[in-house]
């Protein structure tokens, strides 16, 4: 598992979902967490502050998760930032599209704390 000191950005337009992810992360020992409501807001935060990991939803207004990942991968400063996509989009082509855009891993909602832990371990090993 990555160090519990890492700074995590949780991106989701649903406040309940941000809260769920934050609580699970807290249970896993992570407390340095910030939030953004959409890709646009997330990108602005990422350019201003340092983060070690991004957990993002796919369907969001203004800028969706896929666009956010593409923007991160296109940015010289951010391109190596690990990104985990947590979404309700469970079709094979969705997963392929996200992987093509550059996500490091993919979780389908609803998910358990064990799944999040397992995916984080895979990303940071």
């Amino acid at each position: 598992m990555p160090s519990t000191d890492i700074r995590i950005l949780v991106v989701d337009d649903m406040s309940t979902m941000r809260r769920i992810i934050k609580t699970i992360l807290n249970q896993l020992g992570y407390s340095n967490i910030d939030e953004a409501e959409n890709g646009k807001q997330a990108l602005a935060k990422l350019k201003k502050e340092r983060f070690d990991f991004v957990i993002t939803d796919w369907n969001m207004p203004e800028m969706d998760g896929l666009e956010l990942v593409k923007a991160i991968r296109a940015d010289e400063e951010l391109k190596t930032l690990p990104v985990l996509m947590v979404t309700a989009e469970a079709k094979k082509e969705n997963v392929m599209e996200a992987l093509k855009a550059g996500v490091n891993n993919y979780i389908v909602k609803p998910f358990t704390p064990e799944i999040l832990k397992e995916k984080m371990e895979k990303i940071f090993r």
Partner: peptide
């Protein structure tokens, strides 16, 4: 309790269908 908490993501899934 943690499991219940994760089940609260039904709101997000239902919200997406309503959208």
């Amino acid at each position: 309790l943690l499991e219940l908490y994760t089940h609260m993501s039904f709101h997000d899934l239902a919200g997406q269908q309503l959208k």
